[in-house]
Each structure stands twice: as C-alpha cells, then as structure tokens.
C-alpha cells in the first residue's frame, strides 16, 4: 500500500483525536453560563479540564504540522484559502487558553467575568468554524489549476457549510456537558445532564439532516456505501449517548459521544476520499491523496517517526487522564 493513503489515515486519526479531546473542552467552555451559578461552581467546571486542556489543544498543532509534512499542498491551499476563518479560530484559541490561566489571578469579579466571557467566546467560535471548514472541504471550494483557493470568507458561508458548523457546535456542546456529568457531582452534574438531553434532542435532527445531505451529495461515487455506513453509525452513537445520559451512566455516555464524533469525522473522510480538497471550479484541479502528498522518502521517514512516537504519546496521555480521573468537587476549590 502506498504511504500516501496511510498518511491520509494518520492525519484523519489526529483530527479525530483533536475533535474528541478539544471538543469536550469547547463544550465545557460553552456550558459556563448554563450549569454554574457562582464563581466557585465556575472554578469546579474549569478545573475539570484544568490539567488537560493544553494537551488536548496540542492535537491540533500536531495535526497541522503532520498535514504540512505529509500533504504540503493540502496544507498550503487550506491554510491560505480559509484565511479569515482560521484567523478567528486562532484568536479564539489564544484568548481561551490564556483566560484559564489569568481568570483567577486578577482583581475582583469584573476581571474574572471578562475572562469567563473570553472562555465562552473562545469555545463557541472554533466549535462552529471547524464544522464550517470541514463541511466546505468535502463540498468543494473554488481552486484553480495551481492549487490556489480563489474564493473568500463569504464563499464558506453557504447553507451546507453553516449547517455543518451548527452540527459541530451542538455535538461539542453535548460532548462537554456529558464530560461535566462524568467529572462533577451534585447540582452541577444534574444541570449538565438535563442540558445534555436538551442539546441532544436538537443535535439529532440537525446532525441527521446534515448527514443525509452529505450522503445525497455523494450518491454517485462508488464507495457511497461507506459514507452511508459511517453516517448511520454516527446517528446511532448519538442516540445511544442521549439514552446513556438519561440512564445516568456517565462513562458509557461519554464513550458513545466520543464515538459519535469519531464516526462523524469518518463520514467526512470517506466522503472526501480519494480527494483531500475537491475543486468546485474544475474537478481536474482537485487536490488528491496522490497529488498533494510529500515524496515517498519523506513519508517513509515520517511513518517511522509516527510508529515510534504515537504509541508512547497515547500511553502517557492515557496515564495522565488516569492520574486526574477523580471527579472535581466544591471541596477541592479553596475559598478565595
């Protein structure tokens, strides 16, 4: 098998990892105004992701760098093309990241409130825009013969793209709420669970509609069976997550929600295959797994690197989650 295809899988894996991990960070950030009533509760909520948000966010950096190394033409077209969308994502991630560190180091409620707002905005914007970006990638965007994106920000704001954004927003919100149910106790947990059900009931029709739209856009391609299968699994896992939340089985609900996100990404990747950025200008200008990749030598080197590093990474990150496995309670937050 060609290494290009393996790397399509590895890059896909890195983004699935990113969306599962930072996805619940986004959801936790969005939930602040809904599940907390005072600063102590907000600190409980923020501390559920305190030790790990940084490693979660690192997945996007590694994903981006791996894209650069394995598919430089995809990286160049995507990042220069989706310029303003990525700028918004960057600004959000920067503000959100420093806010965790700064919010409790200041002077009074106004300061803390300001950084809580940054955490919320910094969570909503990327959660929405990642969906818009990926929906547009599979739908196809104007790309010329030299591989340059010739549209602008408005090109991305089409109904299918925007609906994709609403889907990721809803899924990450729900993912964060389920994570909170798993990591907190008492009232916060109860509020997170009820809200997760409501968001879930919105996510089902919205997500289902978008999946159906995706399938319909791709009915003519040979491997549409895969797309349908992954779309179906996405919907099943989402329904399972809602049921588990209702049953109070937080751990199972979290796994079901992680699977929902993984299957949604697999739906996207299978709809994309064997392209990586289809051109809506002319299909012959599309960037593909074959024509956008690095040389076989680079891919060989990177395969060895990934084969050596990834098991280690997964092992020590898994260990970290285990170290911080306890639920965060109010008693752990010192009165300030």
């Amino acid at each position: 098998m060609d290494l290009n295809y393996l790397w399509f899988g590895i890059v896909g894996f890195l983004f699935i990892g990113y969306f599962i991990l930072d996805g619940f960070d986004f959801g936790v950030g969005m939930s602040l105004p809904f599940v907390t009533r005072n600063d102590q509760e907000r600190r409980v909520v923020i501390n559920t992701i305190g030790p790990i948000w940084d490693l979660n966010e690192t997945w996007v950096i590694v994903g981006g760098a791996s894209l650069f190394a394995a598919f430089p033409l995809w990286y160049a077209t995507l990042f220069s093309g989706f310029y303003l969308a990525l700028l918004l994502i960057l600004a959000s991630l920067i503000l959100r990241g420093v806010s965790f560190e700064y919010r409790h180091k200041g002077h009074g409620a106004k300061w803390t409130g300001l950084f809580d707002t940054f955490i919320m905005i910094g969570s909503v914007v990327p959660a929405l825009l990642w969906g818009v970006a990926f929906a547009n990638i599979i739908q196809g965007v104007p790309i010329d013969a030299d591989g340059n994106f010739t549209g602008n920000l408005l090109t991305l704001l089409n109904p299918y793209g925007l609906l994709g954004g609403v889907v990721t927003l809803a899924l990450f919100f729900m993912h964060g709420l389920i994570y909170l149910a798993l990591k907190t106790t008492g009232e916060i947990r109860e509020r997170a669970r009820s809200l997760a059900t409501i968001v879930g009931l919105v996510a089902v029709p919205v997500g289902g509609g978008w999946l159906l739209w995706t399938v319909l856009q791709h009915v003519t391609i040979a491997h549409v069976g895969f797309i349908i299968a992954f779309a179906g699994l996405t919907a099943l896992a989402l329904v399972a997550a809602i049921i588990m939340v209702r049953l109070g089985r937080d751990g199972s609900a979290f796994i079901a929600m992680a699977l929902t996100i993984a299957f949604a990404l697999l739906t996207i990747l299978s709809a994309l295959f064997p392209n990586v950025m289809p051109s809506s200008t002319d299909p012959s200008y599309s960037l593909t797994i074959e024509n956008a990749s690095s040389s076989p030598y680079t891919l060989t080197v990177m395969t060895w690197v990934a084969a050596f590093a990834m098991p280690l990474v997964l092992a020590y990150q898994g260990w970290t989650f285990w170290v911080f496995r306890k639920r965060v309670t109010r008693e752990m937050i010192p009165v300030s």
Binding site: T58, A65, A76, T298, M302, V305, Q317
Partner: peptide, 28 residues
Amino acid sequence: SRFVGDVFGAPLAMEGLFAFFLEATFIG
C-alpha cells in the same frame, strides 16, 4: 509551504510528535 513542505514539514511534525505532546502533557 508548497515549495519546502516536503523538507520543512518533517522537523515541524517531529517536534509535535516527539516534543510538544510531551511538554503539554507533563506541564499539566
């Protein structure tokens, strides 16, 4: 990025996989 990605991307990706994951995890 198009011109050098084949060469320049490799050390960046190595940084992510070998170093950045490690520091982001253990700092937490």
